[in-house]
Each structure stands twice: as structure tokens, then as C-alpha cells.
């Protein structure tokens, strides 16, 4: 009985958590493209104006970022200015929650068919590498190891802390700007 009463609240909390994580990830993608040369190098392989979407099917949370050139991303929030070039879609909010709460690695989620890729698979592989790099930076190592296939062995603590601080600062600034606007 109690479980039945709690369930809607738990579902709502899960939705809000995924929504929040999408907002953080979108902003953090923009931030990492400003602070990390490796991420920029990867992103340069994407066409200029390339729109990337990650969303929860059928019409749930979404994040949209654009490659604005020279490896830099711009976060568009949850609406795209034009049809997206690449969409990674979670089949269900529960699957998105597994990934966003680091219970399932992104690569495992792909292998488990939790997500659909609509668009060029090569670009999807590239975006996954950028997401992995982002997670390696912004998450504590013990959590990042649950999120990425392999924690980069060459990522030293000072580089990680410095980059994470800069990314979080940019994410926070972006949040504040959004609220002010």
C-alpha cells in the first residue's frame, strides 16, 4: 500500500533527476569543449553546425548541443533550432536513469540496446568518446569507473581537479545566466 503511494513520487524524482543531469551534461559538454584540447580535437571531426541530441523516448528530457566550429560546442537547452543530425535516444526513462545514476556504463547501455542511434554511427562513436572524457573529468574516479568503459590511465589528479573545477565553474555560470535570462 505504502509502496503504491510512494511510487508516483519516486517516478517524479527519477524524471527530475534525469532532467537535471541532462541540463548539467549539456552545459558540461559546452564547458569541456572550452577547457580541454583533447575533447576539442575529437569534436573537430564533426561538421560545423552539427546538432547532437540526447533524449528520452517518447518525448522526455532532452539535451541539444551544436558544434559551432573549431571543436567548440554550444548548449541549446532542450530545443533544437533545426532538425538534429544525430540523436541518441534512451528507450525509457528507467534506462536513462541507469546511465545517469552511473549504475550502467554508457558503453554497456549501447551494448544492452537501451539506446537507439539515429544518424551517422561514426559521429555517435566520437560523441561517446567526448562524453566519456567529460565523465572522467567531472566525476570522482570511483564513480567515473562505473560510468566509462575504462578510466583513462594517463589522467593525473592535478589535471583532473583543475579541469573539473573549470568545467563546474562554467556549468554554474551558465546556469546562473539561464536563470537571469
Amino acid at each position: 500500500m505504502l509502496a503504491k503511494r510512494i511510487q508516483p513520487m519516486a517516478f517524479q524524482a527519477r524524471r527530475l533527476y534525469v532532467e537535471l543531469m541532462f541540463q548539467v551534461m549539456g552545459r558540461a559538454l559546452q564547458a569541456i569543449s572550452e577547457v580541454d584540447a583533447s575533447a576539442r580535437r575529437e569534436a573537430r571531426g564533426l561538421p560545423e553546425g552539427f546538432l547532437f541530441e540526447m533524449m528520452v523516448m517518447p518525448d522526455g528530457s532532452r539535451l541539444i548541443v551544436e558544434h559551432v566550429g573549431d571543436g567548440r560546442f554550444h548548449y541549446h537547452g532542450n530545443s533544437a533550432p533545426r532538425p538534429v543530425d544525430l540523436s541518441i535516444r534512451f528507450k525509457h526513462i528507467a534506462h536513462a536513469f541507469l546511465v545517469m545514476s552511473f549504475q550502467e556504463k554508457t558503453s554497456v547501455a549501447f551494448a544492452n540496446d537501451r539506446m537507439l542511434v539515429d544518424g551517422d554511427i561514426g559521429y555517435a562513436v566520437r560523441m561517446t568518446r567526448i562524453l566519456n572524457r567529460l565523465e572522467s573529468f567531472i566525476l570522482p574516479r570511483v564513480v567515473a569507473e562505473r560510468a566509462v568503459k575504462e578510466y583513462p590511465s594517463n589522467l593525473r589528479l592535478p589535471e583532473k581537479l583543475l579541469s573539473a573545477a573549470r568545467i563546474y565553474l562554467k556549468v554554474a555560470s551558465n546556469f546562473i545566466e539561464t536563470v537571469r535570462a
Binding site: A111, G122, E150
Partner: peptide, 13 residues
């Protein structure tokens, strides 16, 4: 090869 979809399912990064 790094942009090939199969790389995603390789057990080792």
C-alpha cells in the same frame, strides 16, 4: 577504425 561503430562494442576501450 576509431570512427567505426564496432569499436563501441569492443570489450576494451
Amino acid at each position: 577504425a576509431m570512427d567505426d561503430g564496432s569499436v563501441m562494442f569492443n570489450p576494451k576501450e
